[in-house]
């Protein structure tokens, strides 16, 4: 036994052979190079065509609008001033104009309301799916995911068919004799709200389900065993587990809702303008690119705040677990 170890001359092994060290360094360098080589096509594409444009609109927001779209390379903060004030062309005075502020406020309000609406439907649905037997769960998940992959434009169009003056709801109500005149449903803020809930509902259900899937129902058993009622089990056991999913779901509904374009375009009336449409208009007919750029940046700032809230919350969770 000891003879085994003693049979090796003690002088034969230096601490680390030069050959080995060089080989290892070469492998490490090679791996690093390969990794960045593999990453560069995707990263370059996204940086050049995804991130670079954002810095361009940052620059544009401090320029003057060109006569037929585009910009004139003259520094100006007018794009931001224009949010709150209207410049009188003849007297060059500024008067307070809340029109754009109202659009922003309406957008935030509609996005928030549709988030709450999705939450009220989405949470019970996610919980219901999570308590199905595993075989049935997959089918439910598939049915919830499918609309998410279906063209948003077409789904909004389907909503138009429901809400129109000659739409399904009005026809049914008139056939039943409940109303004589069609109700004004479409081209209202209410229609936009319904459209947003309908569009982004899957975004709410899926993350909540993902969180609830991990719920250990022995905890629920323990809570009932310790005299909790259904309501208390929901509040003290189920909701805390679902919380990360709830937060993620709310962000996922709020952010696209805030920047929505198709929904207000098709379901909202001329008065139900949201930020998304306003930005699109600035780059289209009304052709004030700097103002559109500034509006984009403000929209991004709001989204960023929402994401920060999420990241901070997610970070805190990780600290606990």
């Amino acid at each position: 036994m000891a003879a085994e170890t003693a049979s090796v001359p003690a002088t034969s092994a230096p601490a680390e052979t030069e050959r080995l060290r060089l080989a290892k360094a070469a492998i490490r360098r090679g791996k690093l190079r390969t990794r960045w080589l593999l990453l560069s096509p995707a990263l370059l594409t996204i940086v050049l065509v995804g991130l670079l444009p954002l810095s361009i609109i940052l620059v544009y927001s401090f320029l003057e609008p060109g006569t037929y779209g585009g910009v004139r390379w003259v520094f100006s903060t007018d794009a931001y001033v224009q949010f709150l004030f209207e410049r009188d062309l003849f007297e060059d005075t500024l008067t307070f104009n809340p029109a754009y502020l109202e659009i922003f406020w309406r957008s935030v309000e509609l996005a928030l309301l549709s988030t709450v609406g999705s939450l009220l439907i989405g949470f019970p649905t996610a919980y219901f799916i999570a308590t199905r037997p595993p075989s049935r769960r997959n089918l439910w998940l598939f049915l919830i995911t499918l609309p998410f992959w279906t063209n948003l434009l077409i789904r909004t169009f389907a909503m138009m068919l429901i809400l129109r003056d000659e739409g399904v709801i009005n026809i049914i109500l008139m056939k039943l004799g409940l109303i004589d005149q069609p109700l004004v449903l479409i081209y209202t803020d209410g229609a936009v709200f319904l459209g947003l809930v309908y569009s982004y509902l899957p975004f709410m259900v899926l993350p909540i389900y993902a969180a609830l899937e991990k719920l250990d129902f022995r905890l629920v058993e323990a809570a009932y065993d310790l005299y909790a009622t259904r309501g208390k089990v929901l509040r003290h056991v189920i909701l805390p587990v679902a919380k990360p999913g709830l937060v993620a779901g709310c962000i996922l509904v709020f952010v696209p809702g805030l920047g929505a374009y198709i929904t207000p375009e098709l379901l909202g009336g001329g008065k139900s303008l949201m930020i998304g449409n306003m930005i699109a208009i600035q780059f289209g007919n009304s052709r004030n690119w700097p103002f559109g750029s500034a509006a984009s940046l403000i929209l991004m700032a709001i989204v960023l705040v929402a994401l920060l809230v999420y990241v901070r919350y997610a970070g805190r969770r990780r600290g606990h677990g």
Binding site: A13, P14, E16, L20, A23, K24
Partner: peptide
């Protein structure tokens, strides 16, 4: 097997 390299030795 060669899945790891020794820090030192043969």
């Amino acid at each position: 097997a060669g899945f790891e390299q020794p820090t030192a030795g043969e």
